[in-house]
């Protein structure tokens, strides 16, 4: 409210916190941004970078990756152009498919589904949120009750049901995830719109004679959208986890699509016998990617809060 003598310590503290926290959260943010960028790049060009055909099985079944001591020799042979056996850097799976190629090609499925679903729900959710925040109170309330209802469904099981019964394909997964995530964006945008509508600069624009539509477009929506965009980064990560999880239990993408969750599922039986590589490498890919989106989202959030 009024001027606070607290300001002095608060300012100093904020300065100090910023000094301390900035390097770490900035490193995290940059690492996250790099991972996000890489995942988007692989989504587009990944399938063209694969050293082996991702769909054609070979005779080299369950070949382990080269041991670390073999790597320098193989690299030398490759660079020298000398004849060498087919190298599978991450081994092959039970069908003789090259794990590295498939890990590289998988973002075409995983990332595009996650990004697509979130773009869809971000668009629909923020528009519905804007509507719920500006419409008459009872219309807004009704929108929120419906969105509550969607959120009361158990996410993973509902996803499983919708995808399986609607026919397992990338398209149905996108639509299903979009439906399940839309309430998050409705809620977020609406509460932002409700606060932004009463901000001083919005009233100032009214006093300057701007129309309500102009204000909603130029002041309210741009300011209300930021939290939804930040949320999107985190939710894309969750959507990747869910896409992989659905195919892991057999209710997602169909084989033989190169997809991380399917690859982990296919290698799961071998792991008990010590054949770890067909499952471990796609898992590392998921682990890094989702962490990257979380770190990126967290960094965005901190930047926005400043």
């Amino acid at each position: 409210m009024s001027e606070s003598a607290e300001i002095d310590t608060a300012l100093l503290q904020a300065d100090f916190d910023a000094q301390l926290a900035r390097p770490v959260s900035n490193t995290l943010f940059h690492v996250g941004a790099a991972i996000v960028a890489l995942s988007l790049l692989l989504m587009v060009i990944g399938p063209w970078l694969t050293p082996y055909d991702i769909g054609r099985p070979s005779d080299e079944i369950m070949q382990p990756p080269p041991s670390l001591s073999q790597v320098p020799g193989l690299v030398r042979q490759m660079l020298a152009g000398a004849p060498h056996p087919a190298i599978h850097w991450l081994g092959t799976d039970s069908a003789g498919l090259d794990v590295f190629s498939r890990v590289l090609a998988a973002p075409r499925a995983d990332v595009s589904i996650a990004v697509g679903a979130n773009l869809f729900s971000l668009l629909v959710g923020s528009l519905l949120g804007l509507f719920a925040g500006t419409a008459r109170p009872w219309v807004g309330g009704l929108t929120m009750r419906i969105s509550d209802l969607v959120q009361a469904f158990p996410v993973f099981i509902t996803g499983m049901i919708l995808v399986t019964l609607a026919g397992r394909s990338n398209g149905t997964i996108v639509v299903t995830l979009a439906l399940l995530y839309t309430p998050i964006y409705i809620r977020l945008t609406r509460s932002e719109v409700l606060t932004q509508r009463h901000r001083g600069f919005v009233d100032a624009a009214r006093v300057l004679g701007k129309s309500e539509g102009w204000i909603a477009l130029h002041h309210v929506l741009p300011n209300a959208l930021a939290p939804a965009m930040i949320q999107a980064s985190v939710t894309i990560g969750f959507a990747i986890l869910m896409t992989a999880g659905l195919s892991f239990v057999g209710a997602g993408v169909r084989p033989p699509t190169p997809e991380w969750g399917l690859m982990i599922a296919a290698g799961a039986d071998g792991i008990v016998q010590g054949e770890w590589w067909p499952s471990v490498f796609p898992g590392i890919a998921i682990s890094i990617t989702v962490f990257g989106y979380a770190a990126f989202g967290n960094g965005l959030e901190r930047r926005h809060a400043r």
Binding site: G200, F201, A204, L208
Partner: peptide, 16 residues
């Protein structure tokens, strides 16, 4: 309206 203007209490909140 332009003939009547306002300045608010919270200076930061009043600026986009």
């Amino acid at each position: 309206r332009r003939r009547l203007q306002i300045v608010f209490q919270d200076p930061l909140d009043a600026l986009d």
